Amino acid sequence: MKIALVQDGLMCRAGGEQVALCFHKAFPEAPIYTQCYQPSLTFPEFKEADIRTSWLQNIAKTDDRMKQLFFPLGVQAMQSHDLTDFDVVLMSGTHCAKYVKVRKNALVISYSFTPFRLAWNPESYAQYAEAGPIKRFVFDKILRYLRDVDFRFAQRPNYYVGMTDETAERLRSAYQIKKPIRIIKPPVSVNNFYVSNLPKEYFLIVSRLEYYKKVDLAIDAFNELGYPLVVVGKGLQAEEIKARAKGNVTFLSGLSAQQLADAYANCRAFIFPQHEDYGITPLEANAAGRPVIAYGVGGVLATQIPVKDDPAEATALFFDEQTVESLVKAVKAFEGIEERFNPTFIRQHAEAFDEKIFIEQIQQFVQGKYLEYKKHSVA
């Protein structure tokens, strides 16, 4: 089985890059094709991989810049990758991976996080949501074209793998997929985190600073509460978000793996205000034995156990509305039950999502589909 891996980009340390890293661990001899790769910006384990970048590598030196150049340069850059020598192509991502050239009879498997967000859910981007009438009109023209192109290339994979039932349904709706979509939940590297016996007084957010992540909502809530909040991350809205924060909010970025593990282990709780397709960061907090205060929709429904009766048998406290008032109320409610959460139970819960399980499931799925593919080819 001659297999190639494809990833949108390797320019940060986020969930998509964790999935790509697990693909590499599952198939270590397979080359990884991507738009751009900057070793200092993503997981160091990629240095051991055979990574093949596009010509966009010479232009885009940061994740933000790569995203800004997606249309049309990112599309063209990925189309320059020729994978016609490979029997199997395993893709991961949302937008760019699907544009590589593949052989007509190759087995193509797409681990798709969600339909391309800019094309199918543009309201989640500040540039679109806050655009005036003229700019919105231009946006809509471009987005209609993007949806058409995205849909056409999304028909190529033989099989789709989704993260959750919710994201699988989005894929079916956007791309009119008729075949069953296998659900394999994304991984958390549990061994990268540890449980501290003496957490400190701050709450924690680890996130890209972008519109749909709703970090601004959390900033406003903690401005009102006055409690210490540590925000780890960077992104297109970084300056805007920093400008609205009061002195109780600390911003960090560029942390080492150990520094990030320390940040998780020593927080009181992890704050997750967005509606996320999946969300690996709440599981990372769980791996450190820390509970999560989350907006109770989307991916957290598949990864967290909300408080019902006994907090000792829960991993998270959910809030119902994506508002400052609802989050403030949840944080105050958390204070009343904080000591009843069980770090050992929370850590054990995270272990059910460990990368070893994910790697085994991906290997079994790909190898099983390849055997079917070979039988069909011979027939």
Rank of each mutant, 00 (worst) to 15 (best):
K2D: 10
G9N: 10
V19W: 02
L21C: 12
K25Q: 14
A26K: 09
F27T: 12
E29T: 15
Y33K: 12
C36T: 13
S40T: 12
T42G: 07
E45R: 11
F46G: 09
F46A: 00
S54F: 07
L56D: 05
Q57T: 11
Q57C: 09
M66N: 13
G74A: 05
V75L: 13
S80G: 15
H81Y: 04
T84W: 00
F86P: 07
M91W: 03
H95G: 00
Y99F: 15
A106E: 03
A119T: 10
E123K: 11
A129N: 09
A129T: 00
G132M: 06
G132N: 08
I134R: 01
V138Y: 08
V138C: 11
D140I: 03
L146P: 00
F151R: 13
A154P: 00
P157I: 08
M163L: 15
S173G: 04
Y175T: 09
Q176M: 08
I184M: 10
P186A: 14
V188P: 03
V190R: 10
F193P: 13
L198G: 01
F203E: 12
L204F: 11
Y211C: 08
Y211N: 13
K213T: 10
V215G: 08
D216H: 10
D220L: 13
E224Y: 04
Y227N: 05
L229R: 03
L229C: 06
L229K: 06
V231R: 02
E240F: 04
A245Q: 05
V249W: 03
T250D: 06
G254R: 03
A261R: 08
A261N: 08
A265D: 11
A265T: 08
H275S: 09
A285S: 11
A288I: 01
G289A: 03
P291W: 02
Y295D: 08
V297N: 01
Q304G: 06
I305M: 07
A316P: 00
F318D: 04
F319R: 07
D320K: 15
Q322W: 01
S326I: 08
K329Y: 04
P343C: 10
F345E: 07
A352M: 11
I359E: 12
Q361R: 14
F365W: 06
Q367I: 04
K375E: 08
